[in-house]
Design a protein around this nucleic acid. Structure first.
Lengths: 146, 146
DNA sequence: CTCAAACGTAGCAAAGCCGGTTACGAATCG
DNA sequence: CGATTCGTAACCGGCTTTGCTACGTTTGAG
C-alpha cells in the first residue's frame, strides 16, 4: 500500500521544534508527549526514526532524554520528511494486471509521476529549516523580527 | 485523519487514460475493472468522484458506460488529483493541545507547510495531461481492454 | 411496453495501518 | 543499589480501503 494515514511528520516537526528551541537541554519523551498531546511510546517510536537518520540523539537513565545533533539551520523539513516516510509512495500506486500491455505502461508512468511529485515536495520542504520554525514559534518574548 | 492509504489516484489515471484513448466509445465499469485489475463497484465509486468534478460522464442502460467530457489535452493530473483527494491534508496534521501556545503556533505553521507542499504537487502534476499519457502508452496502437 | 444492460449506492467483510497502552529489559546516573 | 529513562514488543480499538453481493433506477432495443 502507498501512504497510510499518519501524523508522524507533524509530530516530528513539533518535537524537533521544541528540541531545537533549547538545544542544550535534555527532553524526556514524557515531557515531549505532554507537549504534543501524544504519549511517550509513540514519541519514542517517531524519534527513533529521526535518530536513525542522524537528526537527534538519545540517552537513557536519569537526566536522559533527547537532543538535536546539529544547529537548527542545518536541518530542513525535507530531512524530516525523508526520515519519517522513507521510500513510501506519495500519491499511491496500484498493481495493474500483468497481462494488460497498456496497463503496464501506465504503471511505469505512474511510478515516474510519483517520483516527480515526491521531488517537488522535497524541494518545497527544503526551503524551511528548523531555525525558521523556532523563530516563528518562539513565544518567550525574544525579538521575532528578522 | 489526513490521507488514508489508497490507490484511487492511480486507478483514476489508469481509467482516464483508457477513456481518453478512445474518446467516442462508451466503456462499461466492468470492462474498466478488468483492465485495471479491480472490480466494477470500485471503479464506479472512483469515477463518481471524477464525474462530480466534471471530468467524465456516465449513462446507465444498454450501451451505457463512461466517457471523458473534454479533449485529453485539457485535463491535467492536477485535476485528477483534486478530484480524488478533495481537501485532504497531504503531509498529515496532528492536533496540538490547545493549552500549549507554542503548540498552537506550530500547528498553524504546519497547516501552511502542508498547503505549500500541496501546491508544489499540484504544480508538478499540472505539467502532465491525459494526452501525454495516451501518447506515451499508445505507441503500438494495441487494442484497449484486451 | 417489456426486458436486459448498466449505473448508483448501500451494506458487509477482510485486510491493513495508526496510535494508545501496558509491560519489561537495558542503560545510566546519583 | 535504586530510580529514571530509553527501546521495543505485544495487544487493542478504531478507521480506511477494497472486494463483493444485492437491489433499485435508468435507458435503449425489439
Amino acid at each position: 500500500m502507498a501512504r497510510p494515514t499518519n501524523t508522524r511528520f507533524a509530530l516530528a516537526v513539533h518535537v524537533l521544534t521544541l528540541l531545537a528551541a533549547d538545544p542544550e537541554a535534555m527532553h524526556s519523551s514524557e515531557l515531549l508527549a505532554a507537549s504534543t498531546g501524544s504519549n511517550p511510546v509513540h514519541v519514542r517510536r517517531v524519534l527513533g526514526r529521526l535518530r536513525r537518520a542522524g537528526l537527534v540523539r538519545s540517552r537513557p537513565g536519569p537526566r536522559g532524554g533527547w537532543l538535536v545533533t546539529r544547529p537548527a539551520c542545518d536541518t530542513t523539513l525535507a530531512d524530516v520528511w525523508r526520515a519519517v516516510t522513507g521510500d513510501d509512495a506519495l500519491l499511491g500506486l496500484h498493481s495493474a494486471s500483468p497481462d494488460c500491455r497498456v496497463g503496464q505502461r501506465i504503471q511505469r508512468e505512474l511510478v515516474e509521476i510519483d517520483r516527480r511529485a515526491a521531488e517537488a515536495v522535497a524541494a518545497e520542504l527544503a526551503r524551511t529549516t528548523l531555525r525558521d520554525l523556532v523563530r516563528s514559534t518562539d513565544a518567550t518574548g525574544a525579538p521575532v523580527g528578522a
